[in-house]
């Protein structure tokens, strides 16, 4: 898959269609975001997986085997107790959309390529609708997520509209699928879609209201007010952030007033959150923010029939949501 992403990026760059291709690179033994502006850098391109071919340097592991018996795995959410995905896929995802918005503000007439997973594409659609990005200036190169990552994310749609096909190695005839322009008609793997509400949400729903409240309060008490949930979020772009409004949340103390701080964000994000999970991964207090926003999204789509970024969720999907009330 990665070779094909590189091929497409190369074509796009060589044709002059894009100024740069925003993706991930592996450099200095770590994986981070990178804007590829010339084809000769593409060797460093990676998709953000932490196992398989993009595994961390084997020397890193060896280095530790000397005096430290076991080295903590790079895990995104060990505290959540959720099963880690075996493939390590998507373990180092970055808010590429957010970076693209920042770059485009300075270079509005340039066209950029960008690597997208399902959630990234949901984000792009919302950002187009909110006039944060110009759809004509963005070329998407999609990749689909493996099932274990989709399960971990409890993802409703772990692929973008079009994705680079994985199977070309066994079947050379699929080559035309990699051009990134064709609409895929088949899901890359089955089963694909989670049932609503997601398990993490359902588990909480099953608690008594009082217990559920206490459960959240215990989590919120750990918040160190890093604003990481906001700063990493590809859908947060307000100039004046309500979380910093002294009338809403007193400044200068940790934990910030709770649940105000967290509910303020959940409410504000309800019509924007595209369920990428980057906030949960960035939270040093291991607060299950994604679950909170999933719930806020459920409530929202019950009310309005819309789920941000999903173009093809049918009304019947949405109708399946339980009619639940307060949080």
């Amino acid at each position: 898959m990665i070779e094909h992403v590189k091929t497409i990026a190369k074509q796009l760059l060589e044709s002059g269609q894009i100024t740069g291709f925003l993706s991930l690179k592996k450099e200095h033994g770590q994986i981070g975001p990178h804007l590829f502006q010339s084809v000769d850098q593409l060797d460093y391109l990676c998709l953000g997986d932490t196992t398989g071919t993009e595994n961390r340097e084997s020397s890193t592991e060896e280095r530790y085997s000397g005096t430290v018996e076991s080295k903590p795995e790079i895990e995104t959410n060990r505290a959540s107790g959720k099963q880690e995905n075996q493939s390590g896929a998507g373990k180092s995802r970055y808010p590429l959309n957010k970076i693209l918005v920042r770059i485009s503000r300075n270079y509005p007439s340039d066209c950029f390529g960008i690597l997208v997973r399902g959630c990234d594409e949901r984000g792009l659609k919302r950002l187009f609708a909110l006039n944060q990005l110009d759809p004509d200036k963005v070329v998407r190169v999609g990749i689909a997520c493996p099932q274990d990552l989709a399960d971990e994310c409890e993802c409703l749609e772990p692929w973008p509209d079009k994705w680079v096909n994985d199977t070309e190695k066994t079947d050379g005839s699929e080559k035309e699928k990699i051009d990134g322009t064709e609409k895929s008609d088949k899901a890359p793997h089955e089963p694909v879609r989670q049932k609503l509400p997601c398990e993490s949400v359902a588990r909480l729903e099953s608690l008594e209201a009082r217990d559920r409240f206490d459960w959240w309060m215990e989590h919120f008490a750990r918040c160190i007010k890093c604003y990481g949930c906001r700063d990493i979020c590809p859908m947060c772009f307000c100039k004046e952030c309500s979380l910093q409004d002294d009338n809403l949340v007193r400044t200068g103390e940790i934990p910030p007033e709770y649940p105000v701080f967290h509910l303020a964000r959940a409410v504000h994000m309800a019509e924007r959150c595209i369920d990428c999970g980057l906030c949960s991964e960035a939270c040093p207090a291991a607060i299950p923010l994604r679950t909170l926003y999933k719930k806020a999204g459920d409530i929202m789509s019950n009310e309005s029939g819309v789920r941000p970024g999903y173009s093809d969720l049918t009304p019947s999907d949405i109708g399946n949501l339980p009619q639940t009330g307060e949080y």
């Binding site: 280095r63 530790y64 000397g66 005096t67 430290v68 080295k71």
Partner: peptide, 10 residues
């Protein structure tokens, strides 16, 4: 060749 030391005084 040394891998570095996670904890001291082993």
């Amino acid at each position: 060749e040394h891998p570095g030391t996670g904890f001291l005084h082993k």
